[in-house]
Simulated assay, not measured.
Amino acid sequence: MSDEQSQPPDSPQDDARSKRMAMGMVFGLMAGVVLSLLIDSWAYLGVGVALGVAFGAIPMGTKDATEE
């Protein structure tokens, strides 16, 4: 990997990725609690967290000017 392609550790992409992952976990946790209460099985709490992490890991469809 060349120096042009490497990003500094505190790049805006990393910051946005970590915020998206955290928000996905939060919303997944809320969805898991709702599913657990509706279905009356607390196993769906884990399903909600897993869905939130998966949602947070999906990259956004827009490209920054720095990625060109």
Rank of each mutant, 00 (worst) to 15 (best):
P12W: 08
A22W: 10
Q7R: 14
Q7E: 14
L29A: 06
A31T: 02
G48C: 04
S2V: 13
G48L: 04
D64H: 11
G32R: 00
P8L: 13
S36T: 01
E4F: 14
A54D: 08
D10M: 15
D15W: 09
T62R: 15
S36D: 00
E68G: 06
E68Y: 05
P8S: 10
V53W: 07
A54C: 07
T62Q: 09
V34P: 01
V49M: 07
Y44D: 02
S11A: 13
V47N: 04
G48Y: 02
P9H: 10
L38Y: 01
L29N: 03
M1R: 14
E67Q: 04
D40N: 03
L35C: 01
Q7C: 14
P59I: 04
W42F: 03
M1P: 10
G48T: 04
G24N: 07
D15F: 14
A22I: 15
G48Q: 03
M60V: 11
V26F: 12
L38C: 01
D40Q: 05
A22Q: 08
P12H: 09
D14G: 09
I58H: 07
W42H: 02
V26A: 08
P8Q: 15
V49I: 09
S36P: 02
D14I: 10
A65D: 04
M21D: 06
D10G: 14
V26H: 04
A43P: 05
A22C: 11
Y44S: 00
T62I: 10
E68V: 03
S2I: 11
Y44M: 02
M60G: 08
E67S: 02
Q7V: 13
S2Q: 12
Q13D: 10
E68S: 05
Q13E: 15
L35N: 01
M21Q: 08
V34F: 01
P9F: 11
D15N: 11
P12V: 10
A22D: 07
V49E: 06
V34W: 01
A65F: 06
M60W: 15
P59V: 05
L45M: 04
S36K: 00
P8E: 14
F55N: 09
Q7M: 12
L35I: 00
V34R: 02
G52V: 03
E4I: 11
R20D: 09
S2D: 14
L29K: 01
L37G: 03
P9G: 12
A50C: 09
G61M: 08
D3R: 11
G24H: 08
S36G: 03
R20S: 10
M25H: 06
A57T: 10
S6C: 14
M30H: 07
V53H: 06
V33M: 01
S11C: 15
M30F: 08
L29I: 04
S18E: 13
M60E: 08
P12S: 12
L35V: 00
D3N: 15
Q5D: 13
G32K: 00
Y44P: 03
A31K: 00
S36W: 00
M23N: 12
E67L: 05
L51G: 06
A57S: 13
A50V: 05
A57H: 09
G46F: 05
M60R: 08
V53Q: 05
S18T: 15
A50Q: 07
A65V: 03
L37H: 01
S36Q: 00
L51V: 07
K19I: 10
D15A: 10
L38T: 01
D14C: 14
